[in-house]
Design a protein around this nucleic acid. Structure first.
Length: 229
DNA sequence: CTCGTGATGATCT
DNA sequence: GATCATCACGAGC
């Protein structure tokens, strides 16, 4: 078995707090993933908090757990410090670190970071990246640089082959704003739960959630569809 | 620099 | 069947 060390359990306790409180504290932390090809380490510069459905004061319509547990989001209902990785848009992976008190299905989406170890391997995994600051400047880029897929969802980020190290000194000023790419109310100013290190060059460029142009084909023509097969 | 858009498949209703 | 917690690329300033 893979027993957690006392240090890992202390860190797990640290992560077991409200995602909005934890988010700024986790900026500057270094996440490492060691694989057969080598290790890559990322210093986190941008995260987003997603809350669980248990908090009736702040129900979070932008969270994957908003409508309760499913096979995909199961890790978010588990212990803090584990990974929740999902696949989206048919081609991208995104990585979360589960957090929050036990029984609250919340997590932090890792949106960007600075590669501080294994830059060569990260560049190999992201051949289209044109500068070191681009290597992990976006949630799918970050997952790609770390070599994470849905196969890693549910695994413990506080035990090998992973590792998480908190910043030894305060990481500097933190900014916050609305979450990126979240449709509907969950992306509004009311849920300004995106946090980043002010001025850091690796932070992803902000793009407001575009009002998804809905397909009108299904609704048109409106009346001539009675006898369609 | 800022847009707009196509790619592409798991997931949930 | 619609919706995505996105990225890369190309057109037009």
């Amino acid at each position: 078995m893979n027993e957690s060390t006392p240090a890992a359990e202390q860190l797990r306790d640290f992560l077991s707090r409200d995602a909005r409180e934890l988010a700024p504290l986790l900026l500057g932390a270094v996440l490492t993933h060691e694989s057969r090809d080598g290790a890559v380490s990322i210093r986190l510069t941008e995260v987003e908090a997603y809350l669980g459905p248990e908090d009736s004061l702040h129900p979070d319509p932008g969270s994957h757990t908003y409508r309760g547990p499913t096979p995909r989001n199961a890790p978010m209902f588990g212990p803090a410090g584990h990974l929740y990785v999902y696949f989206t848009y048919g081609m991208h992976h995104c990585t979360n670190i589960v957090c929050g008190p036990p029984g609250v299905a919340s997590a932090l989406l890792l949106r960007a970071g600075e590669i501080v170890g294994g830059r060569e391997l990260a560049q190999q995994r992201r051949p289209t990246s044109k500068s070191p600051a681009d290597l992990a400047s976006g949630p799918a880029r970050l997952a790609k640089a770390l070599g994470l897929t849905t196969a890693d969802s549910g695994r413990d980020a506080l035990a090998p082959p992973f590792g998480l190290e908190l910043p030894s000194v305060p990481s500097g000023p933190v900014s916050s704003g609305p979450r990126v790419g979240v449709a509907g109310a969950g992306g509004s100013e009311e849920y300004a739960w995106r946090f980043w290190l002010t001025g850091d060059p690796t932070v992803s460029k902000y793009k407001a959630a575009k009002p998804r142009t809905r397909k009108q084909a299904a609704a048109w023509p409106p009346a001539a569809t009675f006898h369609q097969r």
